[in-house]
Design a protein around this nucleic acid. Structure first.
Lengths: 202, 202
DNA sequence: AATTAGTAAATGAACGTTCATTCATAGTGG
DNA sequence: CCACTATGAATGAACGTTCATTTACTAATT
């Protein structure tokens, strides 16, 4: 017998593996609980319903990503010694790191995005996560523009473009990993940032 | 009584509406056939199975998009009077046109992308469509680079980035349409192309 | 022109399967 | 002994698919 939070995490991680392997629509309670090595009824005990388990799984993946992003982009964390150029490099490293771009995570991410337009709960979680990324990246870009005295740069437009580019690269990495490698994806994203902030990236 | 091809189209269009409204996992044969105003058994008569109907629906949406893209990017269609700059502008207009960026189409597109990593059939259709876009855009970019004498431009890298950017913008338009408008999305994409080919876009 | 036969399209009740959920029962730690 | 965790057979709803039947149209025959 394990504690409530341990079992919850165990089930969420099993759900992630199931979604990555079988897709969201083929993920059943049988599959998830068996993957977790537990009995069928356990998921309803800890999550009340399948719908809730799926929503909590999305929240878990989203929170994990946002925590990583905030660790890099929260000003108080980077002000003492880290330069803006270093922060920019860290952001790029993080977003195309092994942890973030592993198939399992990306498959889960896009499985929920695909259903988001029909399910308000997913839509809400996804869009509020997007909003946070947008806000933080925009702040960083604004600071860089200010520091670098870049003329005619719109931080909001650049942040929108950069985040869309990252999303699109993830999608390519997921659907056609043979055409686009992670290293090449990183080059593409770096090229975008170099065009935008030539003094801050080399 | 209607002909085979008419009924097939009728059912595919009903499927598109159902996926957009209810999501791929909640799209049932009941829902689709009722949406089409037909009886339950009709879909199996024309498509043999639900799986096949869904695959054909994806092929239909994909083909529609590819036809539009090829009409713009096939060299023989644009050689006589159209300049490369005009082709570039047409491409941008098309990819962020009303027809392509309507919620219904984008919702369907990403619903399949979300399941693609778990279903080989979807993966194959999506990736082969992506490959076509990539090839044609790369050809255009290579011609523009050659014409504009742009130094140090890698057509493959620019095409990868541009297509990823477009995908990411579509995703933003779908999940958070209030944050990003179509007009602003177009501005972002145009800014990318201007940075890449300043002589060809103003 | 009317009748018939033949072919394909269309229907929807019925079937077997699978699913999420429930709950009586059992196990465990304090 | 009590509260909490865990089990998995049982349940009923919903699903994709089938198929006997009906309908609609065409073409050949009288």
């Amino acid at each position: 017998m394990r504690s409530r939070s341990e079992r919850r995490l165990q089930l969420i991680e099993a759900t992630i593996r199931c979604i990555a392997q079988h897709g969201l629509s083929a993920t059943t309670m049988q599959l998830v609980t068996r993957e977790a090595g537990l009995s069928l009824g356990i998921a309803n005990l800890h999550f009340q319903s399948k719908e809730n388990l799926l929503a909590e799984t999305l929240r878990h993946v989203t929170r994990e990503y946002n925590d990583g992003l905030l660790a890099i982009l929260t000003p108080k964390n980077r002000s003492p010694d880290g330069s803006l150029a270093e922060t920019l490099e860290s952001l790029l490293d993080f977003q195309l790191s092994h942890g973030v771009t592993q198939r399992q995570k990306m498959a889960v991410w896009f499985a929920y995005y695909g259903e988001a337009s029909a399910r308000p709960i997913y839509q809400k979680i996804c869009s509020s996560s997007d909003r946070l990324s947008m806000q933080k990246v925009e702040e960083l870009f604004a600071a860089i523009i200010s520091e670098g005295q870049y003329p005619d740069r719109d931080p909001q437009q650049l942040a929108t473009g950069y985040l869309a580019l990252i999303d699109g690269l993830w999608l390519s990495l997921l659907v056609a990993p043979r055409v686009l490698t992670k290293a090449r994806g990183k080059d593409v994203a770096r090229a975008y940032l170099q065009q935008a902030f030539p003094k801050h990236l080399h």
